[in-house]
């Protein structure tokens, strides 16, 4: 029986990954990385990691009988961690632990306006507004055709849920949310309904002109904005923050210059139509706003509709 240092290191790395992911779940930081819908899959990953860790422990004090065959380790198909440590392997181990180092040492951040700029926020917003011109026909009844699909399905254009554990809602609830929009004089863009309403307002922008709307968002600006213009934006996360997209409204507010980028604002205003670089888009004339702290859940998630 021998002690194999490298096998111990591998076991150590495996348990660090396990603990790191568990820690993310425990502290809730996982929400800054992935859509909570994928939390279960991530926990399955944790279970696999644990199993691999336990397996790996058995190799730390191996009698090495699984390797008694005298074939040459040098041209073996992959490294079993028994051959001596060299510079190249040190680099490999360093790369493997890199996410652990940055993960434990650097706090996860919330995506901000600089990322929105890189992702082309106004492109995305313009694109959404163009749906009306292109499709002509509003299609908000689309969900009725879905009954034959699976039990659960993501509807990206739908409401994210601030209530993180329940971002799955029933069909009736969804219909209710959709129907409510037309009846309201004052639209409250809560996290749950935000993207559904956003989509609907973009599709039939003319019918929403003059309605009151209140929403939260972070301030985002582009160079070609007028001095009273800004965007109140949100990130919509489908799977993980790497695939986030920006949605939000172009807004005009008198003292826009005083609001710096990344300031979180809770605002009320009326919807009007603005022409931005030749594209008509719904915009908000902000009458009243208030600077707030970043919400506990800054991101929006697509809703999953559950069919009975």
């Amino acid at each position: 029986m021998r002690f194999y240092f490298q096998q111990a290191v591998r076991a150590f790395i495996l348990i660090l990954f396990t603990i790191y992911i568990v820690k993310l779940h425990y502290t809730g930081d996982i929400l800054k990385l992935i859509n909570p819908k994928y939390g279960t899959i991530s926990m399955i990953g944790v279970v696999i990691l644990l199993i691999l860790f336990v397996t790996q422990l058995h190799r730390v004090f191996s009698k090495h009988d699984e390797h008694k065959h005298n074939h040459d380790h040098e041209d073996h198909h992959h490294d079993h961690g028994y051959s001596p440590l060299n510079g190249r392997k040190l680099v490999s181990y360093f790369i493997i632990v890199l996410p652990l180092i940055t993960g434990f040492l650097l706090p996860p951040s919330t995506l901000d306006a600089s990322i929105a700029a890189k992702k082309g926020a106004m492109l995305s917003i313009t694109n959404n507004a163009m749906q009306e011109q292109n499709s002509g026909q509003p299609q908000e009844k689309e969900e009725s055709a879905d009954e034959n699909m699976e039990n659960e399905q993501p509807i990206h254009q739908n409401a994210p849920d601030p209530n993180l554990d329940s971002n799955t809602i029933s069909m009736e609830k969804y219909d209710q949310i959709v129907n409510q929009l037309g009846e309201q004089d004052s639209i409250l863009m809560s996290e749950q309904v935000y993207s559904t309403y956003y989509e609907m307002i973009n599709k039939e922008m003319d019918s929403f002109v003059g309605k009151e709307i209140s929403l939260k968002g972070f301030v985002y600006k582009e160079d070609d904005f007028k001095s009273n213009q800004l965007v109140l934006g949100r990130f919509l996360i489908t799977h993980c923050v790497a695939d986030s997209s920006i949605i939000g409204f172009l807004s005009s507010v008198e003292d826009a210059t005083e609001l710096t980028e990344d300031t979180w604002v809770e605002a009320t205003g009326t919807i009007y139509i603005e022409e931005y670089n030749g594209t008509r888009m719904p915009a908000i004339n902000i009458s009243d706003y208030q600077v707030i702290d970043e919400p506990e859940q800054p991101y929006l998630y697509p809703i999953t509709i559950k069919y009975k």
């Binding site: 800054k32 991530s42 399955i44 650097l106 996860p108 993980c240 790497a242």
Partner: peptide
């Protein structure tokens, strides 16, 4: 750097279960 780290980790955390399977 923090933003990049967050995106980096999120890609990894998302991909990890699938890679493990």
């Amino acid at each position: 750097i923090y933003n990049m780290n967050t995106i980096f980790l999120s890609i990894l955390i998302e991909a990890l279960p699938f890679v493990l399977v």
